[in-house]
Design a protein around this nucleic acid. Structure first.
Ligand SMILES: [Mn+2]
Ligand SMILES: [Mn+2]
Ligand SMILES: [Mn+2]
Ligand SMILES: [Mn+2]
Lengths: 218, 218
DNA sequence: TAATATTTTTAGATTGCTCTAAATAAAATA
DNA sequence: TATTTTATTTAGAGCAATCTAAAAATATTA
């Protein structure tokens, strides 16, 4: 198996490639893993040695198939544990990420598959992120930022692209949790803020900064 | 917090003191942690430095109050996770120890207390071992080895002093799981084997080797 | 394109945990 | 009590992961 640390690098590379669509740079990885570039270079050599990444000096890295499999499996575990923490233990969606960062490294196929069944094989975690299945397949729903919607359009809040506790707690206050129905009433040209109708009942104006991190299914 | 490794040493020292009632030796710890005596000596210096153990060269070690608190907390986590694995995920009692060895190091007060509540604040783990409460208090029931019982006496199987998968699966086969009622019918002088009545229905003869590891409440 | 700035890698060191081999202390035995 | 055996500690080293500082490669900009 891979060490705790190797797993964290693989995960970081995976998340960065997701955003990037290109090879990931040493500095990006250093930033995401809170280490220094020199440490990253060392680790990249090791991961390349183990054939988990494609690595050419100065050219950044991409995951190999086996690196991708490993990364997706860690993400599967992370998200399943987040569901467990929220659905079974009653944690709030802004409290679970750090605990899942630890739990995702627990090493047992049987455990994670049984947990998956116990939770009813959920397809998304508490933040709306898709949960890879046993074989690593991910069903990503088509999500749209609120800032990309037109006045008059409606949809259902189904994800967030910012996971900080501060942001998630604000969404709680605004009533914009997952599953909430929203309809764009008006776009305010002055500051980019957006007036919404929430669940066909109350109205709410949210800033562009908030809106851009809320993802909706139309 | 303490490192994964430090936690494992503290736990080893705790379990050895339980059996010992005296200071624990370097070699005993090496044996239990599958390391060499030289490595143990290094770690003992570090744990003493941190005031987790009382350590005098060549004289063995005992836990300080804070070392004891730390050890008991790890054991609390281990046993609660074992209950979770058996009660919620459907694992057998012989399958959970190794997974719990990993889970016991997950570091979150909130998690373990919520888990405790989720499980209904169990007082014993799947092997009958007592679960320390939030404050570290342990309620140990008075248990007796079957080999210490007299013919005619009865009791309820409530613990085991051997946790190997082989032994536990044998108990499953014999029908001697926790909660089972047993009555001593006869002690065979020839080989020390013991004839039992199980749950007032079937009879079963068990070897002395098995009997000495089964603990009963009279 | 040449000079400058940025990014990445290398060199050399540190920390935590581990080991083997050798030295020392304690315990057992003659 | 002297000798031998066993247990424990010290010495010296290795590996994984990290760091800072310096060197090298690449990218930017004039
Ligand atoms: Mn998360
Ligand atoms: Mn999540
Ligand atoms: Mn156990
Ligand atoms: Mn147990």
């Amino acid at each position: 198996m891979h060490s705790f640390t190797e797993e964290n690098y693989l995960k970081a590379i995976y998340h960065l490639s997701e955003a990037n669509l290109l090879a990931v740079s040493t500095n990006q990885i250093a930033e995401m893993t809170s280490t220094k570039a020199a440490s990253v270079t060392d680790m990249l050599k090791k991961l390349a040695e183990k054939k988990l990444i494609h690595y050419i000096r100065y050219q950044g890295v991409t995951l190999t198939n086996s690196g991708l499999t490993a990364a997706v499996n860690i993400i599967r575990k992370h998200r399943l544990w987040e569901v467990f923490l929220v659905e079974k233990l009653g944690f709030k969606w802004d409290e679970v990420h750090d605990i899942a960062e630890e739990l995702e490294h627990i090493n047992s196929e049987a455990l994670i598959n049984r947990l998956d069944d116990f939770l009813g094989n959920p397809v998304a975690d508490p933040h709306g992120d898709p949960i890879p299945d046993k074989s690593g397949k991910i069903k990503q729903k088509k999500l749209v930022k609120i800032t990309d919607m037109q006045a008059g359009e409606s949809g259902t809040v189904s994800g967030v692209s910012e996971h900080s506790s501060l942001f998630l707690k604000l969404l709680d206050k605004l009533g914009l949790t997952l599953g909430t129905g929203v309809k764009i009433l008006e776009l305010n040209e002055y500051d980019g803020s957006i007036m919404l109708s929430i669940d066909r009942s109350k109205e709410q104006t949210i800033s562009r900064d908030v809106a851009k991190n809320i993802l909706v299914i139309l």
